[in-house]
Amino acid sequence: MEYFLQQFINGIALGSIYGLIALGYTMVYGIIGMINFAHGDIFMIGGFIALIAFLCLVALGVTAVPLALFLVLIIAMLITALYGWVVERVAYRPLRHSFRLAPMLSAIGMAFVLGNFVQIAQGARVKPLPPLIPGGLILIDNGGFVVQVSNVQIIVVLTTLALMVIFSLIVARTRLGRDMRACEQDRTMAALLGVDTDRVISTTFVIGAALAAVAGFMYLIYYGVIDFYIGFVAGIKAFTAAVLGGIGSLPGAMLGGLAIGLIETMWSAYFSVQYRDVAAFSILIVVLIFMPTGLLGRPEIEKV
């Protein structure tokens, strides 16, 4: 039981990270109906920028950890958002009115570019970062097994919750959110009614990338290591999460992220670590077969 509880906590923390990445997928898919294959790599870039920014800040003499972390988060979000903006501008916008496969391949190409760019720029070796936030809360200590929530986990989950709330408010309350929803429903009509759709789509990519940067930052402080390859796998898993939750649905993305995080952690804990990813992908297939619209997606009526 204690073991289960501990794994549950770990799963929630991991799931929060997936959920944040999934938000980016789900937003982009909702608005322009394409899988942004490069999003996983944007997440990875977010992690790297956070790492480098932290090193720079320490070198500049910012040693107070909370302040440093806050600044790192801001820098990572800004620069990664710039990456998101450039990717959309270069690889997707010229193909906005093109055939469906073209943007998808362009996105795959962009994923290769980003992944390999980081590999070349920062080397292929794993980059470690010493634990910055030690300690945690011990929940149960019955002598044999200690169940604890680390401070990092608390930060991860709280940040995710906060972002989720802020983000839902943006979509539900602001003018930008209304424009986004309008584009999601009918882009042509939205454009006719005076919505600057290009701008809305750009903003979506920027927000998605910023959220991915937060996820990358949290991945970094949670695991303490990062390499250029994490983007691909994390990207697929987060996409799985988005689909599981029902693509296009924001709470769905979060829910799906948590589900994938939990499944993955539990699978590793009780079955085998090697087949962890196989389990995640199999679940994707099974979900799509039996629940093609995911947990919170709207059912689709075929138009004849």
């Binding site: 920028i49 790492l51 480098i52 090193l55 720079c56 620069i79 720029a121 920062q122 080397g123 470690p128």
Partner: peptide
């Protein structure tokens, strides 16, 4: 300007796992 933003940290700073296991740049 955009390029400067993109590459500032990625190209401008190179990180590597140091010999002692820490990180150098």
């Amino acid at each position: 300007v955009v390029g400067a933003g993109l590459f500032s940290l990625m190209i401008g700073v190179r990180t590597e796992a140091g010999p002692a296991g820490g990180l150098v740049f």
